[in-house]
């Protein structure tokens, strides 16, 4: 296995194993929005409906497992997107 294989595995483990233990408290912006009273502006239907809102894989009763699977899928999607983009940029170099 190459270095990046191991590194990717580490990332997937972080995404799947640690994500269910994340702090459920609101983040900095959410907290400020609550305190200053503009949090409600974010309510209402989303402009684009996403398949896994709030990092929850649908149809799984265990919240931890649903988050772990969502994290795994997300990390793989980001890797695949960047890998594809990198390859495309490298190819555009050859044809130039």
């Amino acid at each position: 296995m190459k270095w990046w294989h191991w590194a990717l595995v580490v990332c997937l483990v972080v995404a799947a194993v640690l994500s269910p233990f994340a702090s459920p408290w609101p983040d900095g912006l959410e907290r400020v929005a609550e305190r200053l009273g503009f949090a409600a502006r974010a309510e209402g239907p989303a402009a684009v409906s996403a398949p896994m809102p709030d990092y929850v894989f649908p149809g799984i009763t265990s919240e931890g497992l649903a988050t772990a699977i969502a994290g795994l899928i997300g990390a793989l999607l980001v890797f695949a997107l960047l890998y594809g983009l990198g390859k495309a940029l490298a190819r555009s170099d050859e044809s130039a």
Partner: peptide, 21 residues
């Protein structure tokens, strides 16, 4: 560097899921 970019993205995504108090 292409796989390194991918791994960096996967790490940033994973780490962004881990909220710390």
């Amino acid at each position: 560097k292409i796989p390194v970019m991918g791994v960096a993205g996967a790490f940033v995504f994973a780490a962004q899921m881990i909220n710390f108090p």
